[in-house]
Design a protein around this nucleic acid. Structure first.
Lengths: 213, 213
DNA sequence: ACTTCCGTACAAACCAGTCGGTATGGTCGC
DNA sequence: GCGACCATACCGACTGGTTTGTACGGAAGT
């Protein structure tokens, strides 16, 4: 005879854990992992250390969790983007590139990659973080590789390069574009870089009316 | 008058400042800027805080100085590399790319870029560091752009892309390649990325035996 | 003797993580 | 329908170890 239905055994209250993760994502993208203190995150999330250490057993534990959180957010973003509906795999791939370019806008912490930021600092000192970043960057690249594979089968079946290698290359260009955007304090360079990447892919699939392998 | 023990070490060692800079370069490339402490650097250099703060007025001041130090080392390295002797500007450009690929080997902190590492963490919180990284990355890119400009004048005078933009793109690819190398814990991906970059440049210049702009 | 160079000792702030405590709500026996 | 009991969520003062930067002293070269 429960008056208020509680379908799952979870009590209620606005999810403090999710707030911490969202906040940490922003703050770490702006300041880096090491420079971000637990108090920074708590303050920005409007919570206290008690809440933080209730949900995460250490700062490193949070880092691994945000990596996953960021990746899930990204998968949702790309999974529901309009270019996903394009039937032709090459057009879909180019749609992905254009979409990546389109979302490079606004304040830097909002379009840069948390994984690339964290792995730069932590690859040697925090193996768990490194592994998480590798996993999620690799996972995203694998999704891109699927479209590349399909496009290659259709348009460049004999090409010397592998789909996986090209997919990783796209991620490298994006990561490097973010680094330059940070150095130059604006998104413009980054979009220029993606434009070069697009031209390269067009070349690879001999978009420019020449033939031959 | 103590007969034994000359406790304090004798001076006159070649420039402690240079040792601090060299050491800082290594340590920061391995751990990132925020995570490396002044003591880390002093310990690794076999010096103490007294020496450190004698030469640098703050940690940030050191960061700006290592950025410059790193840049000078890089300019020496590329300035005296064999590819510099190549007469044809396109071959020289490709020689640069091959050289970049060749030096991607060994432990990660030895081939990655200090500037890219630092600017990722510090772009928002340490303007002086950001500016230094921007300056030296831009300076190196400008050198590359010179060769690109010459190659373009010879082989692709009407091309739509600018030499400067392509030069920045090469740096983006390298920076991104380093990020992936860190994530994957080895240099192989990075070299793969540079191979894609080389192919792109070949495409841009002559490879597509069709004419057309 | 004066400056440059560098070591030791110390100060003050900072930071990850701990711990005792409170508030809320759910469960179960009766 | 009620009270005892307990789990979960969260708070915030506190601790112990770091960390940047300062003060000062002594050795060496000039």
């Amino acid at each position: 005879m429960a008056i208020s239905a509680a379908p799952t055994r979870r009590p209620a209250l606005p999810d403090a854990r999710a707030r911490l993760l969202d906040t940490a994502m922003q703050v770490i993208r702006a300041q880096g992992y090491s420079a971000t203190t637990v108090d920074d995150i708590c303050r920005a999330a409007g919570l206290t250390k008690g809440a933080f250490f209730h949900y995460f057993k250490s700062k490193e534990d949070l880092a691994v969790a945000v990596a996953r959180h960021f990746s899930e957010m990204a998968e949702r973003l790309f999974g529901t983007a309009p270019y996903r509906e394009i039937a032709d795999p090459l057009d879909r791939l180019l749609g992905y590139i254009d979409f990546r370019s389109a979302i490079i806008a606004g304040p830097i912490p909002e379009f840069t990659c948390l994984l690339g930021t964290m792995v730069q600092e932590a690859y040697d000192t925090h193996p768990a973080i490194r592994r998480a970043c590798e996993t999620y960057i690799g996972g995203h690249a694998a999704g891109v590789a699927k479209d590349i594979e399909a496009a290659k089968a259709l348009y460049a079946p004999e090409a010397a390069w592998s789909a996986e290698s090209l997919a990783l290359y796209t991620q490298a260009v994006l990561q490097g574009a973010f680094v330059l955007a940070k150095a130059k304090h604006g998104p413009d360079v980054a979009r220029d870089c993606v434009a070069h990447l697009r031209r390269y892919i067009e070349f690879l699939f001999h978009r420019p009316l020449s033939k031959e392998e």
